[in-house]
Design a protein around this nucleic acid. Sequence first.
DNA 1: GGGATGCTTTGACGGCGGTCGAAGCGACAT
DNA 2: ATGTCGCTTCGACCGCCGTCAAAGCATCCC
Lengths: 245, 245
Amino acid sequence: MDDQRVGRDVGVDLAAVARLLADGTRAAFCLALLDGRAWTAGELARYAGVTQSTATSHLNLLVGGGLLADERHGRHRYLRIADRRVFELIEGLAELAPRQPVRPRSLTVATRQQALLDARLCYDHLAGAVALEIKDAMVERGLLVWDTGQPAAAALTDRGAAWLADVGIVLPASRRPPVRACLDWTERRTHLAGAVGGALCGHALAAGWVTRVGTTRALRVTPLGRQALHDHLGLPIVSSATRGR
Amino acid sequence: MDDQRVGRDVGVDLAAVARLLADGTRAAFCLALLDGRAWTAGELARYAGVTQSTATSHLNLLVGGGLLADERHGRHRYLRIADRRVFELIEGLAELAPRQPVRPRSLTVATRQQALLDARLCYDHLAGAVALEIKDAMVERGLLVWDTGQPAAAALTDRGAAWLADVGIVLPASRRPPVRACLDWTERRTHLAGAVGGALCGHALAAGWVTRVGTTRALRVTPLGRQALHDHLGLPIVSSATRGR
DNA sequence: GGGATGCTTTGACGGCGGTCGAAGCGACAT
DNA sequence: ATGTCGCTTCGACCGCCGTCAAAGCATCCC
């Protein structure tokens, strides 16, 4: 009688994996980690808006389930996506996932979400369509080399260093890699991260090129910023990201 | 304050899709449907060992979420995987899923599961390792052409038709496609389905080549069957599926 | 040493969701 | 017309799991 439940005994526990991603908090963790970097447990907790204790239990599940790998350094716990297969799984889910979940009831919310796609913070650097335009322009002008092979190799050229100085961006002394490729799930492409990405973003905020929208990660490029990006990188005054809307 | 939960507002609701597959019953449905056929709601309910009412609610969720597509014919409701992307998603999950969940506590259960991998029924035809051996042998002998392209094209050759008659297998008159490729998630390869697959399986059961194990889908290949497969297809008497166990 | 800081453990609370049985409804067969 | 079959709806029950606060532990800094 019970034997009729053959569907349960087939030896592949799909639901176990799916359950790991079936929670909003854990999904947020994974989306954040899609940038390929290793985040600390605390960063993830703040990002998802939960307490550290909650984050800990989720992270234990994800690591235990083989979706994430962790590494302890001193009092920090660094998390990253365990595997290329996990990467692809998450992207496959994202492909089928409803966009703009149920939220955009109000126009203001919809606008804010659109802003998120155009320009936003990704940890300490710029992401979204604008970030891609910046990176592409820098590559085109010989400021950056950008080889997205396996593994991705990216670096600042001498000309790029001169450009930074010209713009007035100073790199803080640190052991941090100057240039990193950061994967962007909204655009499915990589943008500029690392020390240069962080410094560039810091400058953009300080100089009023971009301003934060409320307290979210969304950014708005100011007219001043448009002009600056035009002057320094040759970007069009009307960005392709906002063109036609 | 609440706005700090930026991780939730990114506009891609991963968890919603994952939640659909995070239930054992729904996962069983999807695994069953991986064979590419359309099952009725009742078949799926029996397969997973739940009542019809339970199945209905699950199926509504899966269809609503876009993972399954349904089609009504008379009093039947036929379900199938909605999309190639869904196929790939499920396979990606299966790749990461733990095998042999927690169940194999008793030796008899473990043995039964192994039998399920070696030979079993997939609706009306043979699946498992033995089914693959049969298909491969038929291709090698020129009885079958098997092009697993997109879409997969498979057909019986004239020599194949003669072989069927020689063995004593008659195809019932029907509009059913004679040869179909059926995807097998345990082996990650396709085996022989369609009218020929069904007739072959029927003959194998009737002639005592295989017998059912209890009331499950699992099959055991009898010594008589081994001999017959050797005579008709040149398969080794000791199958590669059981060799070394 | 003392005091931050980052993470983990524990315990308690609350809600969501999976389950079934029973009743209802439509399609099909005789 | 009557019965059967396949599916759906409804209502009720129950267990699981995500959440937090508080306390604890380890590490790092001064």
